[in-house]
Design a protein around this nucleic acid. Structure first.
Lengths: 142, 142
DNA sequence: TATTGTTATACTCTATAACTATA
DNA sequence: TATAGTTATAGAGTATAACAATA
């Protein structure tokens, strides 16, 4: 009984393991920017080229909107994000990433975009094959 | 200038995106067991077949050991984990997963092991190719 | 002296419920 | 009436520092 698992499930579980092994790196990179993990997560979910409503951020973070108020308060206090009025509904507040916020985002992407060692050790051919598979998987999903 | 990114980096970033899209599922599965995400994370890091010291858990979770005290208090209160004396050092406390704890772990693995939609939609051939690549990546890394 | 785990403290995250101001 | 965001509250997560027991 070797290989009872479907290849889809085993692939997913291997990715899961690989990803989990990188959690400490995420925490450490956020700490380098003096941001808590939730704060960094929120900043990375924002769109630097288009302000988004508070409620949308709460949805993508999967947490209550009362929660986002505090996280955004602190990001705004750090000057990384701004609350702006929305065009046609005076209830909603749009979140815009500031220049400093964009800079933090860029540094984070550079640091966290560095592949995990397991991926780094792949041959160029394997890495291209993996990239193409993932492009296909994510492409078909939208 | 299309494709300036090395295939390793792009593959890693695609995996990152795929994984992030599954965070809500993790939170929801933990909530089904009435556990907070950190509690579920801690329980899943333990080894059901071999008790581990508190300090080791703190290391794998990447947090301070003072933190683990509280998380383990609550897991122990739920009867999912036990603190036991260590053999040769009376300072250390070993964490053992109880029968109930093992059951929660199994349910979690079943639920979270279900592949993300993007993976599920891959053909069998693609899924096997992906699995083999990841086996190779993770295998070489140890 | 050094190490393991706990306690004390302060701040952050989180959900629920009640509230304000819009719609 | 319903919705977007805030505030109030209570419990949990987090790091730092000080501590007790043990090595």
């Amino acid at each position: 009984m070797e290989d009872m698992t479907r290849p889809h499930a085993e692939a997913w579980q291997l990715m899961h393991r690989l990803f989990m092994s990188q959690r400490r790196r995420f925490v450490s990179i956020a700490a380098d920017e003096q941001l808590s993990p939730p704060q960094m997560g929120a900043l990375m979910q924002l769109d630097p080229s288009r302000p988004v409503p508070m409620g949308d951020l709460a949805d993508t973070l999967g947490c209550d909107s009362s929660n986002v108020t505090g996280i955004v308060d602190r990001l705004e206090g750090r000057g990384l994000v701004e609350r702006r009025a929305a065009e046609h509904d005076r209830r909603v507040k749009m979140l815009a990433v500031t220049g400093d916020g964009v800079a933090v985002r860029e540094r984070f992407k550079t640091a966290m975009g560095e592949p995990a060692p397991a991926i780094e050790h792949l041959s160029d051919a394997d890495a291209r094959a993996l990239r193409d598979l993932l492009r296909r998987a994510l492409g078909e999903d939208r």
